[in-house]
Design a protein around this nucleic acid. Structure first.
Length: 255
DNA sequence: ATGGCTACGATCCGTAGA
């Protein structure tokens, strides 16, 4: 099973790139974030024609998440139980024997802001929920844009970013709390090139300078991590005309 | 220099992202 995740920053704009990428990479499960489209405008048919079923929780202008899969998608749920939230950031579904959670964590804007407080509340609710979900689902995977660079090696210029949103200690602690539940960061199960990132600022030629952050991750429960054979970042879509600011990430599971 | 792109929904600029 090949899992993938991509913050497309508007599915409407990126649909041709998504279809091309699916045809080449052929993931079994694809999680999308920032689709920025309402459910009634979701390109269900184009994605079906590419061989994928889809479930989604969309929203106009902002946020919006979706799960695509080659096999039957069951038990779809949206949002985080116990968190009253208008923003469409979470969708979960079962594909085969695997439970998949697609996440788009809040940005947080700036440390100390109201949006930062919301980000930490969101993470606390996520952790509480996943603690229960791990009991229910022995094969649980979290894929998405976590909006946290977990370690300094996930940051192009740690000095410049020190203490800033996405790298601050409260955010990193919230992210590590997921590992403490028993998840593994699939990317770090393998040797990886230095300066590996999944997002680059549109401004200041961020991609050309490799001025990026690794804020997109695939977290696997122990059972899935044990059978994970590869994990990586595909930078190719970031080089296209009109790219998303994020690029797809993948993890392969042998079971 | 606290900006610089990009997408969106509403204009002919403001909000948000990271």
């Amino acid at each position: 099973m090949k899992f993938a995740s991509w913050n497309v920053n508007s599915l409407k704009v990126r649909l041709p790139q998504l279809l091309d990428w699916l045809a080449g990479a052929r993931p079994d499960v694809m999680c999308l974030q920032e689709i920025k489209t309402e459910d009634r405008g979701f390109p269900h048919e184009a994605i079906a024609a590419a061989g994928y079923r889809s479930v989604y929780s969309g929203q106009k202008t902002y946020n919006g998440v979706a799960i695509l899969a080659r096999e039957v998608i069951a038990e779809t749920s949206t949002g985080i139980p116990g968190l009253d939230d208008e923003q469409r950031r979470v969708i979960a579904a079962t594909i085969g024997a695997t439970r998949v959670v697609c996440l788009y964590a809040p940005n947080g804007q700036a440390v100390g802001s109201e949006k930062f407080a919301y980000k930490l509340r969101w993470y606390a609710a996520l952790e509480r929920w996943l603690r229960d979900e791990l009991q229910r689902y022995p094969r649980l995977a979290l894929l998405g844009d976590f909006n946290v660079a977990p370690e300094d090696r996930d940051v192009h210029d740690p000095k410049a970013w020190e203490g800033q949103v996405h790298v601050s200690e409260p955010e990193r602690a919230a992210w590590r709390a997921l590992l403490a539940l028993g998840f593994k960061d699939s990317f770090r199960l393998f040797d990886q090139p230095e300066k590996s990132f999944s997002w680059w600022d549109y401004r200041m030629m961020g991609f050309r300078r490799n001025a990026g952050l690794r804020i997109d991750q695939i977290l696997l429960c122990d059972e899935l991590a044990r059978t994970c054979t590869a994990a990586g970042i595909d930078k190719a879509p970031r080089k296209l005309e009109r790219p998303s600011d994020h690029t797809p990430i993948t993890a392969d599971i042998s079971s």
